[in-house]
Amino acid sequence: MNKKNLNILKTAIPWAVILLLFVFPFFKPDIFFLSVGVILFMYIALSSSWNIIGGYSGYMSFGHGAFFGIGAYTVALLLIEFGYSPFITCVLGGLLAAVFALIVGYPVLRLKGPYFSLATLCLGLAVPVVVINMPNELTGGATGLFMPLLPVDIFVNRTIFYEIMLALAVIATLISRWALQSKFGLGLNAIRENESTAETIGVDSTRLKITAFVLSAFLVGVIGGIFAYYRTYVHTTTVFDVNLSIMIVVMALLGGAATWQGPVLGATILIIIDQILISAFPGLPAELSRLIYGLILVLVIMFMPKGIIHFVNVWLRSRASAAGAEEVQK
């Protein structure tokens, strides 16, 4: 196969997969698969969005749950109070998350390495404390907020969210791919490699970091808004979940944080493993399946600490050069 065909194949396959995923609900599958799809696409979108700041620039935020929750609460409140559709207001949720990111970003992005990670973790933990202690009429306090269901049957409902989350996953991935391959992404990479050196060749690190942080927060806020409507219930413990903040980091790192494919692969693998452990072995106690899940994480990262994509790339390259050597010998 020549190189041109290979390249066409490389672009065609992902789009074919997306098309297949898009038409999948029209074959009336079991509703379970649609639910898995919603969660899978959501995590792909979240992890890809996180990767723009966390992977490309190396500023590993552990507080993205805050942006997710802000988006979710915005959507829930606007629907309950004014009846605005979440499919529109999710953009507002994203904007609010972005504004919040802009405000906290200036001070927090001055911190380096683990200090940044831990400060964002604290932010992620602090925001829900504020939300839960706001007046009950506003955020529902400890009870949370209930939203009206979409007036359609459950299958149509799932299909709608399935398709929207699929679209969000595709959009987030495309944005993250664009970000990596653009001037913006190269600048972020330079910051990750060595921030002060990057400055001395003209990289405006402050502005780039803030832009990446805000863009990332916006996307996560939008996704949070859609998720809120999917669940029709928001509560600080569900939409400001620290586990979510950590999961999206782990997914990106597992797949390969320096690449745009990494989060897609990492999220897919972890969600599928999770689902298999839960549903394929119904007799398996939940904690045992969690334990196996942890074990897989440990083993995978031990052998592929730079992420799966990196590992595969190195393997492909070594195979290619081995094949090349064989050709020469013939």
Partner: peptide, 23 residues
Amino acid sequence: FEEMTVLENVAIGDLYGSGEGSI
């Protein structure tokens, strides 16, 4: 920038240091 290619290392200098210019 160790994890980047030689070409990328230099291209960043041009992209950011000397103003505009496409990738």
